[in-house]
Write a protein that binds this DNA or RNA. Structure first.
Lengths: 318, 318
DNA sequence: CTGAAAGCGCTTACAG
DNA sequence: CTGAAAGCGCTTACAG
C-alpha cells in the first residue's frame, strides 16, 4: 500500500494507528528509503546533490574551498560530490559529464579548460553552475573571484613604498586566469609608479613548490644589482620562495599571494595578500542555492577584495 | 525503442546503421543518460558512488586523505561524496544515513561517535564499509590505521636518547582513539625506559591550535625544573606548540606527530613522527573496492607504520 | 483516511 | 538484429 510513502514522508492525512504500524514495520525490516528512486518520480526533479570540481584537494586553497562549500551544502540538506580535475581539461570534462549524468542539481567549478561552452546546453536544461576562483563563460554564468589584479598591485606598491626597485615575480601558468591577473597587477603596479617592468625579473609557468624554489634561486643568484624583493603569485609559489630565501645569506623581502598557516611563525614572518577563501566558497554555494530556489536574475560576477597583511617579510628594506 | 539502450551502452548486437541513427539523434537532442534511473534497474545494483565521512576538510590530514580517496575512486570509475561529521556523533550519524539512503556502494569513515553498531544492518545488506585513521567495529569491519602507539614510543625514546627527562605531552581528547593510543605510547615509552610518568607534564583534551598553544605555554612556564621537551600528539597541536615555543627565550625540544608543510623551513626545523596519509587513503579505498568486487575474506586491520624524521627540533639537548 | 493505477528513465528477459 | 512487456523503488494523481 502506498500509504507507506505518506507515513515516511510525514504527510498529514494518515490515521495515527496506521502510521504507527507502518513505522514499526519499517524499523523491524530495517527499511531505508532509496533516494535515487524517489527523485526519479518527484515533481521538482531535484536530487539534492551538488558537485564541486577543482584542482587537487591537497592544496590548502582548494581544501578550504571544499570545506566551505560542503558546510553550506550540508546545512541546506544537500550532499556534495567532489571531483578533481587534475588541472587537465579532458579530466575536467570527464568529471563534469559524470556529474551531469548523475543529475546533480548544481555545479561549483574551478575551471581548468579554456572552453566550457559544452556546459551551456546543460545549464539551459536546468543544471545550475557557478564558477569560482577563475571566471568562465562570463556574462552567461555566475562567477565568484578574488580581486587578483588589485591584490597584486597592492603588494607591488607595498614593496615600492619600502624602497625596493628590483622586485622579482614568481607566477603560475598564465593560462590560468588568476595567474594572468596577478601578473597583470604586478606590471600595472610598477607602471602606475612609473617604474619599468624588467622581464628578466619575472618567472612564469611555475606550478609547484619545487619549480618556484628553483626559479627564486635563479632570481637571487646575480651578485651585482640583485633582486631585493620577491612577490610570489600563489600559496605554492610562496612556499617555494620561502625555501629559497631561507638558504640565502642576505635578507630578501617577500610578499606572497594567499595566506597560509605558519606564515606568522616563520622568521621573518611572511607578509601576504590574503583572500577570503571561506567567503569565496560560501558565496558561490549560496549563489548556487539561490539559483536552485528560482532566482532568474542575470548572471553576476562577484569580486571579493583581498587584504594585505604585513608581518615582517614584506617590510624588509633593500 | 529500447535498442537505444543497447547503442548507448555499446552492446554488440546492433546494426551499424541503426547505431549511427541513434547516436546522431542523441547528440542532436543533447541526450544525457540518467545514471540514477539506470542503476535502479541494473542487476548489480551498484551506484558507482562512494562516500567519505571525516572531520573538517580544512585539516591537512583529512584533505590529504580525501584527495587520496578521490583519486583512487575516480580512477576506478567511482564518484565520491564527501561529508563532514564536524567531530560530532549526531552529525556523523546523520550524514551516514543520508549516504546510505543514496545507496552509495561503499563508505570510508573516520569514525567520530563511539557506537557504530547502527551500521551493521547496512553492512549486512551490502554496503561496504572501511574505517580509517581510527578503528571501529573491529573484527567485523575493515580498518586502516597508523601505528600510533609505536610512533609515540619512538618519539619519546628519541627525546630520552637526547638527554631529556622532563618531557611534556600535548594530547587531543582521549575519546579519540588516535589520541588515546599516542598518549599510551607516551606513557609506555617512559615506562619502558624505567622513567616515571609525571601527570603534571601532561595536557589532554586539546582540540585546536589555540588550546595547544596555551597548554604548551603552561608547561613551559615554571622556572625551576622546567619541561625541556614537548611531544605534540597531532598536527594541530604541533602548530600550537610551535607558536608557544617561538615566543620562548630558552630552546625547547619538540617532536610532533604528523608531518606538515614548512616543518623543514622553521628554525629549528621540526622533527616529526610522520604517517603516510596518502597510503592510508589509498589502502582504505582499495580495500573497499576489493570488497565491492566480491572479496569475502574476514575483516582485517591494516596498521601502517610511522617514521621519525629528525630535523633539528627533536635533537635539541636540555 | 486509504488504496489501485500510472509513470519517472532506464535495463532486463524474452519473443520474434 | 529489433522491439514489446515488465519491473527497479518510489511518488503522483485520482477514485473511493
Amino acid at each position: 500500500m502506498k500509504t507507506v510513502s505518506r507515513v515516511l514522508n510525514a504527510e498529514p492525512a494518515v490515521a495515527v494507528s496506521t502510521a504507527e504500524r507502518v513505522r514499526e514495520a519499517a524499523v523491524r525490516l530495517g527499511f531505508q528509503r532509496n533516494e535515487a528512486a524517489a527523485h526519479l518520480r518527484r515533481l521538482d526533479r531535484s536530487t539534492r546533490l551538488l558537485g564541486l570540481v577543482s584542482e587537487d584537494l591537497r592544496n590548502p586553497f582548494y581544501s578550504a574551498l571544499a570545506s566551505a562549500v560542503e558546510g553550506v551544502a550540508r546545512h541546506n540538506g544537500y550532499l556534495l560530490i567532489v571531483a578533481s580535475s587534475d588541472e587537465n581539461a579532458d579530466t575536467e570534462r570527464g568529471v563534469l559529464s559524470a556529474l551531469i549524468t548523475r543529475r546533480v542539481d548544481g555545479l561549483i567549478v574551478v575551471p581548468t579548460g579554456t572552453d566550457h561552452s559544452f556546459l551551456i546546453p546543460e545549464i539551459d536544461s536546468g543544471t545550475a553552475v557557478v564558477f569560482v576562483d577563475r571566471p568562465a563563460l562570463a556574462e552567461q554564468v555566475d562567477c565568484v573571484v578574488a580581486a587578483n589584479a588589485d591584490g597584486a598591485v597592492s603588494a607591488v606598491h607595498h614593496l615600492l613604498d619600502h624602497g625596493h626597485r628590483r622586485i622579482g615575480y614568481l607566477g603560475d601558468n598564465p593560462g590560468i586566469s588568476t595567474a594572468q591577473e596577478r601578473y597583470r597587477g604586478y606590471r600595472d603596479g610598477l607602471t602606475a609608479a612609473r617604474r619599468p617592468v624588467d622581464d628578466s625579473l619575472v618567472r612564469l609557468g611555475l606550478h609547484d613548490t619545487a619549480a618556484a624554489e628553483d626559479a627564486c634561486r635563479e632570481l637571487l643568484a646575480p651578485v651585482d644589482d640583485p633582486v631585493t624583493a620577491i612577490f610570489a603569485g600563489n600559496n605554492r609559489l610562496t612556499i617555494g620562495a620561502v625555501h629559497a630565501i631561507a638558504n640565502q645569506a642576505r635578507p630578501v623581502a617577500l610578499i606572497g599571494f594567499d595566506d597560509f598557516e605558519l606564515a606568522d611563525v616563520l622568521r621573518p614572518a611572511v607578509t601576504v595578500v590574503a583572500q577570503d577563501v571561506d567567503a569565496m566558497g560560501r558565496t558561490a554555494t549560496e549563489l548556487l542555492l539561490r539559483r536552485l530556489a528560482g532566482d532568474r536574475r542575470p548572471a553576476t560576477l562577484v569580486t571579493l577584495s583581498t587584504r594585505l597583511i604585513p608581518r615582517g617579510s614584506g617590510e624588509i628594506r633593500p
